[in-house]
């Protein structure tokens, strides 16, 4: 699980071009969206959906399904672990 969280942090940082964010400061439990936390938006949701399909073979058909999954890096990791195809 910890390795998966580490991988995801790196993949998200790269996919979203979060150059200024150091991996040490990237808290696995910090909210990804909204003003408190990382501050991502709806386009980032779509990019993360692309990332999950590319890296883990997970297909999300509806961005709305992602709301609960994309709360934090940890919730994404839990979802990936349960649903990954590769």
């Amino acid at each position: 699980m910890e390795q998966l969280i580490k991988d995801l942090k790196l993949q998200i940082k790269e996919a979203l071009n979060l150059e200024e964010l150091s991996l040490e400061d990237f808290d696995a439990d910090a909210p990804l969206f909204g003003d408190e936390g990382i501050g991502l938006d709806s386009i980032d949701v779509l990019e993360i959906i692309v990332l999950l399909e590319k890296e883990y073979g997970i297909r999300l058909a509806n961005p709305k399904e992602g709301k609960a999954i994309f709360k934090s890096v940890r919730t994404i990791a839990e979802y990936v672990q349960a649903n990954r195809k590769k």
Binding site: I43, V50, E53, K54
Partner: peptide, 10 residues
């Protein structure tokens, strides 16, 4: 035609 970047398109 899969997993294309929405950021690039927009």
């Amino acid at each position: 035609e899969e997993t294309l970047s929405p950021t690039l398109f927009m």
